[in-house]
Amino acid sequence: MLSMGIEFFLFFQQILRIAVPYVLTSVGASFSERGGVVNLALEGMMLAGAFGAAAGQHYTGSAAAGIFFALASGLAVAFLHAFVTVTMKADQIVSGIAINILVMGATRFGLSVLFGSTMNSSRIGGIEVPSVFADPLFLAALFSVFAGQFVLFGTPYGLRLRATGENAETADAAGIRVSAMRYSGVLLSGALAALAGAFLAFQQHSFTDGMTAGRGYIALAAMIIGKWNPVGAALASLMFASAEVAEMWLQSGFLPTQIVQSLPYVITLFVLAGFVGKAVAPREVGVPYVKNRLSD
């Protein structure tokens, strides 16, 4: 009985550890999309954050500096996405995909310049803690859920942000600066995605090429399943993390490896098929706002 309890605790701790990047990124996505900007660039923001964290800690020896460089990198990518979609009115889907490709190439180039390799960085110390419960990035993820829920649904800022995603013209007429609100939502999503990338780099004690491995897209799916709601997004993230842990535990079983490795993605498709029709997106998400049809 004791061994079963220990196994369950380890299983639960592993779920929480894997859920951290999903939770941070999906909560951030809620802010971006509630403001009206589709954020497929989450993958690139996470990857930039992971690279910034690895490079920052490698050259300074400080995890705090690594987090600072992660945030700077993620915010730079988020600003680019906001500029292209909010200021230049470009297609938000195309911008997100293009930015992901750009960041993949840029981090690969950065690896070759800074570490002399196109595959991985030098080993970094990460954040040494006895368990995930003591990890400051885990605590940041936990805080982001409740703070995000309160900010979005309990503050004037959250009301203004949601207004820009529901009806930008009405929000503008009420004196809300639509562009500024949308920029803020994208930048918040970039900061949280960058922290998610930093967590990945610290956990793996290095940066490896393409290490986010589609987590940004899964986080976006979690946000949709969670109905553009930080608490709902976090719960969906836990579900996907559970599937990923189950994949690890099943790899030594009788199922073919290819089936086991595809489990998180299969679950994503099935859950989206079941929930996306019931989840109502912000009315003008993905729609650039052109003030008076002439200028913003």
Rank of each mutant, 00 (worst) to 15 (best):
G110R: 08
A106F: 15
L192Q: 12
G28Y: 04
A191Y: 09
F275G: 06
A241F: 11
L2C: 01
E7N: 14
V287K: 02
Q149T: 15
L235Y: 01
R17H: 09
S206R: 10
Q92D: 02
G116V: 07
F199T: 04
G36H: 01
F133N: 00
A246R: 09
Q149S: 12
R177H: 15
R17N: 14
S237R: 00
A140W: 02
F9M: 15
Y59K: 08
T107A: 02
L47W: 12
M181Y: 10
V290I: 10
M119A: 15
Q149C: 12
L272A: 10
A65T: 12
G110K: 13
P130S: 10
N39Y: 13
S206W: 09
V178H: 03
V280I: 04
Q57M: 03
F51L: 03
A221Y: 14
Q203N: 01
N229I: 12
A82D: 07
G253Y: 10
L188Y: 04
L16C: 09
P282W: 01
Q204W: 09
E43Y: 00
G35I: 00
S295F: 15
L187S: 09
A241W: 15
V94C: 01
A234G: 04
A273E: 11
S32N: 08
A221V: 11
G49Q: 03
I97M: 10
I97L: 05
V276W: 04
L2K: 00
G66R: 00
F202L: 08
N120E: 12
A213D: 14
T118P: 07
W249M: 13
F207T: 03
F83K: 10
A180H: 12
F199L: 00
G158Q: 05
P136M: 15
A90C: 08
T212M: 07
F109C: 15
V260F: 15
V145W: 05
I224A: 12
S30A: 11
N39W: 04
S262A: 01
G154Y: 13
R123P: 07
A82W: 04
S112N: 11
A173M: 05
L192I: 05
Q149R: 14
E284D: 08
A191N: 09
A221G: 15
E169L: 09
G210M: 13
Q14V: 08
Q92P: 03
H58F: 13
G5E: 07
A279T: 01
G126I: 05
F8W: 10
A171M: 03
L255C: 05
A196W: 07
R182T: 01
A180L: 06
G216P: 05
F79A: 06
A72K: 05
A219K: 07
V20I: 07
L255V: 06
F109H: 14
